[in-house]
């Protein structure tokens, strides 16, 4: 079976700096993988390449394929990219939605890749598509806000609307670029719970970049760690003890822990793990 996401020997240079340096990763279908690293380690750059929004360096033979279809090769986004993108949901750190459009319209936009172009341009969405959009909004818990403008939603609600858009897209792969970085802890947990739920119940492959390693430990079995554009670790999340992260990152590792939790003390007990267990059935019941 083809990899859900396969990145081979990808490099990207901005000006003189190497943002990605010969990165190769493979994510199997159905996995939920965390991508961690300090600021500037290349997490966002990597995810933007996978989403087909940026082209890699022309030199070298880097390639990215999604579910067996090539998104870009040798620094060129393929002609297929538009079709492939429609099977990949993307959630950004912020500014996912068009603020002046209704939340429902923002979610309906997920259909554009899978419908005749002219109908899409005229926003002729069918009743069935609208119902599906409402179901998706209900599932992420913001059906009440469907008729509000996107800009009126809180940060966490905007992230959830973006996830609903991916659901409407019928995405088999979800890429989330620091979806919880600007959220308060309870909104962050809600967003991560929804991502976990999509992964478990719908078998959607999730690749999520996180700033703090605690969330990786709690939600993802596997973690890929980047440093200065290189993969420095790829394996089970449990192995990422503070000592090991200290080895990988040196002084930078402090940045990777939630403030307030004493990283130096060694055992940063993952608190939210219990919350996952209690919130997941609630999300399931809501659907």
């Amino acid at each position: 079976m083809a990899c859900a996401v396969s990145v081979e020997k990808l490099s990207k240079t901005f000006g003189g700096t190497r943002a990605l340096d010969n990165v190769s990763i493979a994510v199997e279908p159905g996995e939920m993988v965390a991508l961690i690293g300090a600021s500037g380690s290349g997490k966002s750059t990597l995810l933007r390449h996978i989403a087909g929004l940026v082209e890699a360096d022309k030199t070298g033979d880097g390639a990215i394929s999604i579910l067996g279809r090539t998104m870009q090769a040798n620094g060129r986004i393929t002609a297929d990219a538009r079709a492939i993108r429609s099977s990949v949901g993307v959630v950004f750190q912020q500014f996912n939605l068009v603020g002046r459009l209704k939340v429902l319209t923002n979610v309906l936009i997920g259909n554009l890749g899978n419908m005749p172009r002219l109908k899409g341009c005229l926003s002729l969405f069918t009743g069935e598509q609208k119902k599906a959009a409402m179901r998706a909004l209900h599932r992420v818990g913001i059906a009440q806000q469907a008729m509000q403008r996107g800009s009126t939603l809180s940060g966490g609600q905007q992230q959830r609307a973006a996830i609903a858009r991916s659901l409407v897209q019928g995405a088999r792969v979800l890429i989330a670029d620091e979806p919880i970085a600007s959220l308060d802890p309870s909104s962050a947990r809600k967003v991560m719970d929804i991502l976990g739920d999509l992964n478990r119940r719908d078998g959607i492959t999730v690749l999520v970049s996180l700033h703090q390693v605690e969330y990786a430990l709690n939600y993802c079995r596997r973690t890929i760690a980047l440093r200065n554009g290189q993969v420095v670790y790829d394996g089970p999340s449990e192995a990422l003890t503070p000592e090991f992260l200290g080895e990988l990152y040196g002084a930078e590792s402090e940045e990777l822990f939630l403030p307030g939790l004493d990283a130096a003390a060694g055992k940063a007990e993952p608190k939210p793990r219990r919350a996952v267990a209690s919130l997941a059935p609630a999300a399931a019941a809501a659907y």
Binding site: G52, R82, R85, S87, V90, I109, R117, A162, R165
Partner: peptide, 11 residues
């Protein structure tokens, strides 16, 4: 937000 729309496979 435009990138968000591009990422859904829109033209």
């Amino acid at each position: 937000p435009v990138e968000g729309i591009r990422a859904t496979g829109a033209s």
